[in-house]
């Protein structure tokens, strides 16, 4: 029996590894399962039966409001943002050829964070309200992420990009961005401070359908683009010399991939804040599940990222209830040690 399923037509041919397909299906199932639990559980418990009733449009008043207005958008944002961050991490790890790279380690999320905190500080009125629409916040964050990505790339350029230099510059700029963020928080009106720190830790608290509709297009455009690029990522991982000798324009590919990664991370961070370690851990687990061919790695990373953020949010809402702990705290508290464990297990 073949290891692969072949999908072939006149225009394209596609090999799908059975193991990957199987893993993906299981992960989709797990994602769905956590989503349904997450919809029912919270400050107001709604039984699974009522959840189904409400989703099919036959539920009772209060359940409908809670599910449709609060929980569904929040859960969807968690899924999309988690997947985006994890994909962004998978790309970066491919470009840099280092399993420790991720949007947060490279400072891209710090750039987005600085832009967003500046936005909050500048446009806050005395009565703790924003003077412009919150809709511009994501624009600010994505711009920040792009500028940071561009700055890292420019500063790391010295007759081409060395992955190590890219990381070092990223780490340095991250520290600078964090210092500037602190400056904004300290100098800004004090009422903006708690708001800004909650956002910086990363949370999907209080998202609404508008957020979902603003984030979704980014994800829907970038992901197919990325999958089309998977082949190039595979070659890129062989090293600069090998991929150049195979006829790839290494720096051009690296630039495009960096751009996609920045856009994914920036758009996700815009709506959820800097949920850390998802971009680090997601791809890492994915690699252990399906190996490092990007055709398989990317989708599996996406699902895992979604699952991680969903779980972190669920835990944040329930464990210390009625206190809401931001999802980012859980991803950091669990993500970092788990990651260290993985590293040991892999390399002994």
């Amino acid at each position: 029996m073949s290891k692969y399923i072949t999908a072939r037509s006149k225009r394209f041919s596609f090999l799908i590894e059975k193991k990957t397909l199987f893993t993906s299906l299981i992960l989709i199932f797990i994602t769905m399962a956590i989503m349904s639990v997450s919809i029912g559980v919270g400050e107001l418990y709604i039984s699974p039966l009522d959840v189904i009733k409400s989703l099919t449009g036959t539920g009772a008043g209060i359940n409908n409001v809670v599910i449709h207005e609060f929980r569904l958008p929040r859960i969807l944002i968690a899924v999309i943002a988690g997947a985006s961050l994890s994909l962004a991490g998978a790309i970066l790890q491919g470009i840099i050829r280092n399993p420790l790279a991720s949007p947060d380690m490279l400072g891209i999320t710090s750039g987005a964070g600085f832009a967003a905190v500046t936005f909050i500080t500048v446009f806050s009125s005395q009565s703790n309200n924003l003077t412009v629409s919150i809709g511009y916040l994501p624009v600010a964050a994505v711009t920040g992420a792009f500028l940071m990505g561009a700055l890292i790339y420019l500063l790391a350029w010295k007759r081409g990009i060395s992955p190590v230099r890219l990381i070092l510059i990223g780490v340095g700029l991250m520290t600078a961005a964090q210092a500037l963020t602190t400056l904004m928080i300290v100098l800004g009106p004090i009422y903006a401070a708690p708001q800004a720190t909650i956002w910086l830790t990363g949370t999907v608290y209080a998202t609404n359908w508008k957020d979902v509709y603003s984030l979704l297009p980014w994800f829907l455009i970038l992901t197919p683009l990325l999958l089309a690029f998977a082949r190039k990522l595979n070659v890129q991982e062989l090293g600069d010399d090998v991929s150049a000798s195979l006829g790839h324009s290494v720096n051009k590919n690296r630039f495009l991939l960096l751009l996609i990664s920045t856009a994914l991370a920036g758009s996700a961070v815009a709506f959820t804040g800097a949920i850390g370690f998802v971009g680090l851990v997601g791809p890492h687990i994915a690699r252990r599940l399906v190996g490092s061919s990007f055709g398989a790695l990317l989708p599996v990373s996406g699902f895992l990222g979604a699952i991680i953020v969903l779980l972190a949010d669920l835990a944040g809402r329930t464990i210390f209830s009625p206190l809401e702990v931001p999802a980012g705290v859980f991803t950091a508290a669990i993500g970092a040690p788990y990651f260290i464990y993985l590293l040991f297990k892999n390399h002994g």
């Binding site: 420790l100 830790t201 850390g276 370690f277 702990v325 705290v329 950091a332 508290a333 993500g335 970092a336």
Partner: peptide, 19 residues
């Protein structure tokens, strides 16, 4: 990189505690 990971982890946890 290990340093950056550890620094990021502690920074996040500190933020979370302050929230």
């Amino acid at each position: 990189l290990a340093g950056a990971v550890i620094a990021a982890m502690f920074a996040s946890l500190t933020q979370g505690m302050l929230v």
